[in-house]
Every structure is written in C-alpha cells, then in structure tokens.
Design a protein around this nucleic acid. Structure first.
Length: 894
DNA sequence: GAGTTTGAAACT
DNA sequence: CAGTTTCAAACTC
C-alpha cells in the first residue's frame, strides 16, 4: 500500500518514507511520511491551525496523546500544524490554496480507492474515501446542512474504521496477528461498507470515477506491494484513521471559525468538538490497544457496542477534565449524540442534523439529546473545578431524573448522614446543578446558533439547578468534613459559615426568580433549634442559602439538634410530622380506579390554618402556602383559599356523611372522643385501605368510596390500634409497629425512599412517632379495617396530644407523596413549604441515637414512603376541636 | 433594605 | 386549655 500511496503522493520523499514505514509496521506511524503528508494536505488545518492547535491543546488530553500511536494516527495534538510544517514545507504553502487542498484530498481519496481496487483493502479504502470525501465536503462548507449527511457517513466510517483500527492495532502487537487482524478487518469493513448509506457509497463511487488516474497509478504500484500487504493495509488503515482524524480536526476548526463565539467555548471545553474528540479518542484507543490495555473495550460485548463505548470513553478520556462524564453515560448512543451536540453551534447543527437525517429521528429527539448534553455538561463544568468529577452514570440520565433528584434533594440534600449514603444521586444532581450554573455562560454562547433547542436545555438546566440548591447541596457535601476539621473553631466557623450562606443566599435569591426552591431559614434568635426554623422543622440542616444567625442546626451540632428534637417531640410527638396530608393512598384499590385523585388539591393541612386576616390568600396561611385547600380542621375566618375553601370542604364532608351513616354508628360504638367525629367528617382520617376516601378532597366520589371502604372494612385493627396507642408496649413507636410498616410498604416505596433518602432528615422520631400499626392496618388487605374505628380508638386513646387522631393519615413525608404530584414538589420539600414534606429520620438510621422511638427507625424508611396517610396528627388541639365542631355541625345537619 | 403584618410556635 | 408572648416568614413600602 505504501508504494501506491507514494506514487500518488506528489512528494517523492513522502513515498519513500511511506515504503519505509510500511516495512516497519511496528514503527510508529507518526514517522510515516504518508500520514504526515496526508495531514499536511488539508489546507484547512493550516489556515486554522492556530485555532485547532489551541483547541486541541486543551483537548489534547494526555490521554489522547499519550500513546505514540495517537500521534501517528491522530497526530492530533499540535500535530496538524507540525506535520504540515515538517513533512511538507512546500506543500504547506500550497495547502493554503483551496485548490491544492482539493487536489490533495482527491489524491487521498484516490489512494484510498486504489487500495480498495487492489484488494480487500478496498473496503477500508472505500470507507476512508467516503469519509474523506464527506469530510472534504464538510470542510468546504461545514455549516451547510448537506454536510450533515457527509458527517454522518463519516461517523459510520469512523465506527467501522474504528473497529478495523482496533483490530489492526491489536494485530500490530503480533505480526502474525497483524495478518489475521487484517483479514478480520477486511471482513468487518466489508460489513461496514454494506451498512454504509447509499449516499456514502455513491460518493465513494464518484470519487473513484474522478480519481481514476490515481487509482490506476496505485494499482500499478499496488502490484508491487507483495508481502507487505498486511502492513500496508494496516498502514492504510492507520492512514485512513489519521486522515479521518485530521479531517475531523480540520472541520472542527473550520466550524469553530464559523461558529459565533464558539471558539471560546471550544477552548474552554476542547472536548466540545465532537468530531475531534471522536477521532482523537479513536486514535487514542488504537494506541491504547497497542500500548496499553483498553479500558472501555473490555466491557463491550458486541462490536458496535464496543465502538460506541470506545467513543464514549474516548470522549471522556480526551477530555478528562470536563467530558469524562459524557463518556461514562449509560446510554452510549445518547452519549455520542450528546457529545456531538456539545460541539460548536455549527457543528451541533450539522452533526445533529446528520444524526437526525440518517436516523430519521425527530427534532424532538434532538432536544432530548440536547438535554442530555446539558446533563453531560454539568459534569464537565464540574470537572473543571477541583472537585471530584462525577461519573456520568447519574448525569447521563435524563433531565427528568435530575429534576426529580433536585426536587427530592431540595429539602434535605444538605445534611443528613443518611443522605451521604445516597450521595451518589443527590450529589450528582447537586453538582450538576452547580455545573450548570458554571456552564451557563458557555451554553449561552454555544446556543446562539441553535437557539431554541439549546436555550431550552439551558432553561431546563437552570430550573433544575434552582430546585437543586446546587450550591447548598454542594456545600453540604463538603461542609461536614470541613466543619469537623475546624470543630474547635465552631464560633468562628459559624460566623464564616453564616456569612457565606447569607452571601450565597442573596446571590441565589437574586438569581432565582422562583425563589421558593432556594429559600431557607433566616432565624436570628432561635438558633434554628425550634420549629420556627423551617429547616429544623423540616428535619434538615441549615445550609448555604440560610441566613440564620448563630445556627446550631448543623451537622456538627448534631447532638444538640437531636436533643432539641427530642424535647420538642416529647411535647408533641407529631411536631415534626408532615403538615400536609395527601389523602390519596397508594392502595391499589383506590388508586387504580382514579389516579387523578392524588391531585394536590386533595391534600390538606393536618392541623389546618388559623388565619384571621389573610383570608387564606397569602402565604401567611400554611394551607395556601402548601397549595392546599382549607379543610374542616382550619379555624380560619373568611376563608377564601383559592385551593379550596373551608366551606366547600365542609359541604363535601356533609355529603359524605349523609351517604354513610356508618361513620356515626361506628363512632358511637367506640370509646370516642370528639375527635372521632371529626375524623368521620374528615376524609383524611380515612385509612389507606380506602384511598378514595382520603382523596376525597372535595370530590364526592372519594368520599363515597371512603364510606364504602369503611363499611366494608371492619376494624380488626381496633385491637392493634388500641395496643399501639394505648401506650402499651406495643405503642406505635415500638419497633414492632415499624416492622409492620415495612411489610406494608408498597413497591413504589423504593422510589420514594430514594427520594426521601436524598433528603437528609434529622428527626428519626417522626417515623417512630408515626403509628406504624396504623399503617399496617391500613395497608394490610387482610385486615379490612374501618379506619374510622381505628382512628377513633387511636384518637381516643391518644394522649393529651391528640395528635394521634391523625394517625390514619400517613406519616410519609409529603415530599414523597408529592413527588408524583404536579404541585410544587419542590416546595413541599423545601423549607419554604414549611415542612410540607416532613423530614425523615433517615440520617438517624445511621445515627446511634437511642430511645424508644428510634427503635423503629430502620423500619421507618420503608414504611414512610409507601403509605400514605398514616400521618400522626400534628396538632391535636386545633384539629380535634375543629373536628369536633364539624362533627356537631354535621350531626345537626343530618 | 427597613419596617409592618401575620400566624405559627412557644410559653405561661 | 386558653391566653400571651415570641418568632420568623411574608408582605409592603
């Protein structure tokens, strides 16, 4: 092959060197004049050499250039310029002329085609030629849409060639193997050729036609090839690769030049050049195969997969700093796409379009890719920072995942120990958030051309970042260590910490239009150790966004926090229970029928509000703040809650009561307190068995179903409830009850658990507080229970607190409940929501805290998510009173 | 940003 | 348990 190439090559010296290189297959390709020649051929490089050099310098990750082969094949680093300079002094000048460039390209193509004609090599050559052609065209007008197709073909070629190269590289290790590899390569290439799009084939043919002379020449020389075929072929392969790589680089720079302000972005993120990355990585892989073990390849089962993974890895390797994440992403195809999209605007358009065209995918998909890209970028940005680079595994996921993570993490990312276990998820999201922020600028630059799509991505990312509390979460991860280090300097540290937080908070507040997600406490006198503090109430540690002063609600003061919590709980076991109760249960019975019931509107505030002047139309009202309607429990005056007026709720209740007189009868049967009555009236007290009932917010259906369930369900639990709530050893707080809860947990609980885990919860007790027994009863199909009865008993049994009357309502953190709900899930989780989502005691699981309540903690995790309304009654007083009143009212009505 | 309003939490 | 005080968020200017 070398000989033909030489003959083709205008430069004799090049040919001679080529032959030499061929003879010494093992010799690094770098030296091969042929490759140099080829590299020098492209004028584009020269023109944009500087750009390229810069971009690649940055890009030229050590990985890419580490291997000698890389230089040879890829000649990436500064290569293009260097090669052109040294190998072809004269040509250099010539190259600058477009004509020359064309001729050179053609000559290359011709060479390739010659190879193809000659032998099996042809396949490879064809690929190369097509690729080169495509590249050439692409280079000619990188921005044009037509290029997309060519680009696509190039990509295909790359994949194939990549495989070939790998095999060939492997072959290099052993001469014998080389031949083998060659054959294999040929076969692969043939297959690949088949796969090539008709367009690429056509282009190849056309090239062949135009380059007949060259081909003939090559054929003549080709006859003389002889034994060296294997090597030649290998060289050709390399050549192809190198040329491809070169081409890629060339077009990369061109694009760069075309791109608006993309150069900066590219420089910052050299890896952004998809083509370059792929090629470089490709070269690298080759080198890696030859020189060192291939990391990515090991994993890949199928060839295609291998190529894909390699690319991904390559990307990552090429850009160890930033792009590493991209390479790792689970979805290889997506990774590739995303990497492509990372390219400059022009590149993005062309390449993306190419993908789209070939795959006939919709623009929508591209958008998805972009989103993925955004995700990938996050890690990249992050990588720039000294912080650890996260693997894309998480990042590579979909925005949705991020958003979810964010929402989940909002409340709790910060603090808890448990959260650390889950770190991977939450951390990723957090980091990603930060990254997003950092990358926002770059994104904007890049987005200019593509505009809408990328902007969308940015927007999404931004929203995600907002919800994530990026900074906060990040800080949290780091905080513990730092803080512990400086534990002796708590005071100073506190001050500093406060200052930092205040600064960040301000920053965030200013940045965040939404503001809800980032809001945190601003306590000044309570030291964040009282329920006044939203963070504390939510069971999370204060974080950056907080502007609190003298805050003790931090990991370093964990003991203090826990003690305080205990105290508060001792006063009111349900103090940390979620305020907002989602009536809808996960029970299959209810849910399956009507999934919509779980609307936010159905949720209610457990204790109800007590508004007198705000008319429940401002955030002073907890119901309004939680985006839930007022209920019977509310003692508000002049309620005008847009999410549901108290009056409306009462009306609904009445209807329910009429339909089911059972409730009253049951009540009478039981030792009840007024609370029971209230329960009857309040759908939220219903047991999980009757999801519909809980859902009842205003819906009659729900109420009806609730009644129905009640009737159907006798109260087997009564005994249990009595036990648990009678303050007997089996009290709900006992581990037994917890166990029950665990059993009852629904499959969906896992997801919720994860979510909950993301949030660090300070208070272990909530779970313990929650009457696990109630959950169990509710959930257990075996025991059809009348929630009312249970509730009644519970309530009646309930101690002075009376908080237990709500037991029926699930204790599960609202975040979990709301995760699926449209209603500001974030808010629910956020402190702003004022504990909308109760903090879970996950962290306590890890903590060694002792105490009766804690015994059940472990179980809590499972139980919490799965079941809805076990909720302990937060406020026994008000609710009980209200319920009482309501009950009386209802009775009178009846 | 300071001051006011509001209602929950805490206290008595 | 009711009333009062304290507190911090929400709101207004």
């Amino acid at each position: 092959m070398g000989s033909p190439k030489l003959s083709k090559s205008p430069i004799p010296s090049a040919s001679a060197s080529a032959s030499a290189s061929i003879s010494s297959s093992s010799s690094p390709v770098q030296e091969s004049p042929f490759s140099n020649y080829i590299s020098s051929l492209s004028p584009i490089k020269h023109d944009k050499a500087p750009h390229v050099a810069q971009g690649f310098v940055g890009l030229s990750s050590p990985l890419v250039f580490t291997s000698p082969r890389i230089n040879t094949l890829g000649r990436p680093q500064s290569s293009s310029v260097k090669i052109s300079q040294k190998g072809v002094g004269d040509k250099k000048i010539i190259n600058e002329s477009c004509i020359l460039e064309r001729s050179v390209t053609e000559s290359q193509e011709g060479l390739v085609t010659d190879i193809k004609n000659e032998d099996i090599k042809d396949n490879v050559a064809v690929q190369l030629g097509s690729s080169s052609e495509c590249v050439d065209e692409y280079l000619a007008d990188p921005v044009e849409t037509d290029c997309a197709k060519s680009a696509y073909s190039v990509k295909l070629n790359l994949k194939q060639s990549n495989n070939v190269l790998q095999s060939s590289v492997n072959g290099l290790l052993d001469l014998k193997n080389i031949k083998f590899g060659r054959k294999n390569n040929v076969g692969r290439e043939v297959d690949a050729a088949q796969f090539l799009s008709g367009r690429s084939e056509e282009s190849i043919e056309r090239k062949l036609t135009s380059d007949e002379k060259l081909l003939k020449i090559e054929d003549e020389q080709g006859s003389a090839q002889g034994i060296s075929d294997g090597f030649q072929k290998f060289d050709s392969d390399r050549f192809d690769l190198s040329s491809k790589e070169k081409e890629c680089k060339n077009f990369g720079p061109q694009k760069d030049g075309h791109g608006d302000g993309c150069s900066n972005f590219l420089q910052q993120l050299p890896g952004s050049l998809p083509g370059v990355q792929s090629y470089e990585g490709f070269a690298k892989n080759i080198g890696g195969d030859a020189d060192a073990p291939v990391h990515s390849m090991k994993h890949e089962a199928s060839e295609l997969q291998r190529s894909m993974s390699r690319r991904c890895l390559q990307f990552g390797e090429a850009q160890p700093e930033a792009t590493a994440t991209c390479s790792i992403s689970t979805n290889r195809a997506n990774n590739i796409i995303s990497s492509t999209s990372l390219a400059t605007n022009s590149e993005t358009e062309s390449l993306s379009s190419s993908h789209l065209d070939l795959s006939a995918k919709s623009r929508t998909r591209q958008l998805v890719n972009l989103s993925q890209l955004a995700m990938n970028m996050i890690p990249q940005c992050y990588g720039k920072s000294s912080l650890t680079v996260l693997k894309p595994s998480g990042i590579g996921l979909h925005l949705n995942s991020i958003v979810n993570a964010i929402s989940m993490g909002q409340g709790g990312t910060a603090s808890m120990k448990v959260a650390q276990a889950i770190k991977s998820t939450s951390t990723t999201s957090c980091q990603s958030t930060e990254n997003i922020d950092n990358c926002s600028d770059a994104f904007e630059k890049v987005s200019t051309p593509q505009g809408a799509l990328e902007q969308k991505v940015c927007t999404i990312a931004g929203s995600a970042s907002e919800s994530l509390f990026a900074e906060e979460s990040v800080e949290f991860h780091m905080t513990p260590n730092i803080k512990r280090k400086f534990s002796s300097e708590d005071g100073d540290r506190n001050d500093m910490f406060d200052q930092q937080r205040s600064i960040k908070k301000r920053k965030k507040l200013s940045n965040n239009t939404d503001g809800d997600c980032c809001k945190r406490c601003n306590c000044k006198k309570t030291k964040c150790l009282k329920l006044y503090c939203d963070c504390f109430a939510a069971g999370i540690y204060c974080a950056e966004p907080c502007s609190c002063q003298g805050c003790f609600n931090r990991p370093e003061y964990e003991e203090t926090v826990l003690e305080t919590r205990k105290q508060i709980e001792s006063r009111n076991p349900l103090a940390f229970a979620p305020k907002i109760v989602q009536p809808v249960t996960e029970f299959p019975l209810s849910n399956r029928e009507d999934g919509n019931r779980k609307t936010p509107s159905s949720a209610r505030h457990k204790r109800g509000c007590n508004c007198k002047r705000s008319m429940c139309l401002k955030k002073y009202c907890e119901c309004y703040q939680a985006n839930v309607g007022c209920s019977i429990r509310c003692r508000c005056e002049g309620c005008k809650n847009v999410y549901g007026k108290k009056e409306d709720y009462c009306v609904t209740k009445e209807m329910v009561n009429r339909s089911g007189e059972i409730s009253e009868s049951r009540v009478a049967a039981k030792p009840k307190k007024e609370i029971f009555h209230s329960e009857l009236c309040d759908p939220y007290h219903l047991t999980p068995l009757t999801p519909s009932v809980q859902c009842s917010d205003h819906g009659k259906n729900a109420s009806i179903s609730r009644l129905f369930s009640r009737r159907c369900l006798p109260s087997p639990e009564s005994d249990l409830t009595v036990l648990s709530y009678a303050k007997s050893p089996r009290s709900p707080r006992t581990s037994d009850s917890n166990d029950i809860l665990l059993e009852t947990s629904s499959p969906s609980s896992k997801a919720r658990e994860l979510t909950s885990l993301s949030r660090v919860q300070l208070d272990p007790r909530r779970r313990s507080l929650t009457p696990g027994g109630s959950l169990h009863w509710h959930s257990s199909p075996i025991m059809p229970m009348s929630p009312l009865n249970d509730n009644k008993k519970l309530q009646g049994l309930d101690s002075a607190d009376g908080g237990l009357y709500d037991i029926l309502e699930d204790d599960m953190p609202e975040i979990l409940k709301y995760t699926s709900m449209p209603i500001k899930p974030v808010k629910a989780g956020s402190p702003n929501g004022k504990r909308v989502s109760p903090p879970h005691n996950l962290h306590q699981l890890g903590s060694s805290s002792s105490g009766p309540l804690r015994s059940g903690r472990k179980f809590i995790l499972k139980a919490v998510p799965s079941f809805p309304p076990l909720t302990p009654c937060i406020d026994a007083k008000g609710s009980s009173n209200q319920s009482r009143n309501n009950f009386q009212e209802n009775r009178s009505n009846d």
